[in-house]
C-alpha cells in the first residue's frame, strides 16, 4: 500500500499499575489494533468515552506516560516509527489536535504557544505565518493576546486546530474535537476536518460521537472493549445490512433516529479468552468462547468475527 500515510499494525497498549504494596497489575487498554490512513482520507475511530481511544493518539506521537507500554508497529510513509523518530516528526509532519484547552499552557499567551519555541531571527516570520493561519480559521487578531482561560469553547477549538496546522503537517490526529460544543460549532469543526482532507492531509479522527464520524469520515473503525471489531466505509453505515459485526449493527439501530432499539449486555471488564462480544452476541458459536477472532479482510471491509473466517476458508 504505497500511498498509506500512517499504518498501525497489531498495536497493543497496556499499563503497569501498582495494586497493593509492590504487587503489580498489567492493564490492557488497546489490543491488537490495526488500521491505516491514506493521504486525503479521514479515518474515524468510534468508541465509548473512557474506552482508551485517546491512547492510540498518544502512542502515535510518543507521549504515552512512563508506565504505558506500546507493542506492535506504527509506521509513517512506510517507515517504522521509533521513539526518536516520533519525536522528530511530531509537531512537523504529524500533529495532534488535543481534546481540550487543558493541553494549553495557562500562563502563556495563545500566540506565543502557537508558534512554539523559535529563534529570535525567525520569530517575525513565524508570527506572520501564525497570523495567516489564525485568519484562515476565523480567529480575530486580538485572540493571539489572550490567555487560554479567556477563550470560549468554540474559540479554544479553533486555537487548538490552527496551532496544530501551523507547521503544515501531512497527518493530523484529532482527539475528540467536538465535545461540549453546540451544533453550530460542531458543524464548523466538521467542515474544517473535511477541508484538511481536501488539502491532501490524512486525518485520524478519534471520537465517541457517531454523527461526527458519519459526516466527516471515509472509513470508520468501531472500537469495542479495547478491540477494533470492524472497519467499514462510512456510506455503509446508512444501511444496517451492509454492516457486518452484530455490535456495529446494534450501535446503529440504537440511534434515536433509527428506532432507539434496545440491545442488552455490557462490555466485559476483564480480558476474556474468546471474542470480546461473546457474552452478548446473537450469532455466537462454540468456537467464539475460547478463541479470539482476528481482524480479517472481507471484501474490503475489515471484520473481527469467526462467522466471517469460515467463509474465507
Amino acid at each position: 500500500m504505497e500511498n498509506d500515510l500512517l499504518t498501525v499494525q497489531n498495536v497493543s497498549i497496556s499499563f503497569t499499575q501498582y495494586v497493593q504494596g509492590l504487587q503489580q497489575h498489567i492493564l490492557k487498554v488497546i489490543s491488537d489494533l490495526s488500521l491505516s490512513v491514506k493521504e486525503g482520507e479521514v479515518v474515524a475511530i468510534l468508541g465509548s468515552s473512557g474506552s482508551g481511544k485517546s491512547l492510540l493518539a498518544h502512542a502515535i506521537l510518543g507521549i504515552l506516560p512512563e508506565n504505558g507500554q506500546c507493542d506492535g508497529t506504527i509506521s509513517f510513509k512506510g517507515e517504522v516509527l521509533t521513539q526518536e523518530k516520533k519525536e522528530e516528526l511530531r509537531g512537523e509532519h504529524i500533529c495532534l489536535i488535543p481534546q481540550s484547552v487543558n493541553f494549553l499552557d495557562p500562563l502563556m499567551k495563545v500566540r506565543e504557544q502557537a508558534i512554539g519555541d523559535v529563534k529570535d531571527e525567525e520569530k517575525e516570520k513565524a508570527l506572520k505565518h501564525q497570523k495567516e493561519i489564525f485568519e484562515k480559521y476565523g480567529l480575530a487578531e486580538e485572540v493571539g493576546d489572550m490567555y487560554p482561560f479567556e477563550l470560549s469553547g468554540g474559540m479554544a477549538r479553533k486555537v487548538l486546530l490552527s496551532t496544530a496546522l501551523l507547521s503544515d503537517p501531512e497527518l493530523v490526529v484529532a482527539d475528540e474535537p467536538t465535545p461540549g460544543l453546540d451544533q453550530a460549532s460542531v458543524n464548523e469543526t466538521i467542515n474544517d476536518i473535511k477541508r484538511l482532507a481536501q488539502e491532501g492531509k490524512g486525518v485520524l479522527l478519534i471520537t465517541h460521537e457517531i454523527d461526527v464520524a458519519l459526516k466527516t469520515a471515509d472509513r470508520i473503525a468501531i472500537f469495542y472493549s479495547g478491540y477494533v471489531i470492524e472497519i467499514n466505509k462510512a456510506e455503509n453505515f446508512n444501511d444496517v445490512n451492509k454492516l457486518l459485526h452484530p455490535y456495529t449493527k446494534s450501535l446503529i439501530e440504537a440511534l434515536p433516529r433509527n428506532g432507539f432499539k434496545l440491545t442488552s449486555g455490557v462490555q466485559p471488564l476483564e480480558e476474556v479468552d474468546g471474542c470480546p462480544y461473546f457474552e452478548n452476541c446473537p450469532i455466537r458459536s462454540d468456537i467464539c468462547q475460547n478463541n479470539k477472532p482476528d481482524l480479517i479482510d472481507h471484501n474490503g471491509i475489515m471484520i473481527r468475527c469467526h462467522n466471517f473466517d469460515k467463509e474465507v476458508n
Binding site: G47, Y247, L262
Partner: peptide, 8 residues
Amino acid sequence: MLDAVTQV
C-alpha cells in the same frame, strides 16, 4: 457521553 447502545 455514552455510546448509543448504553444510551438506550
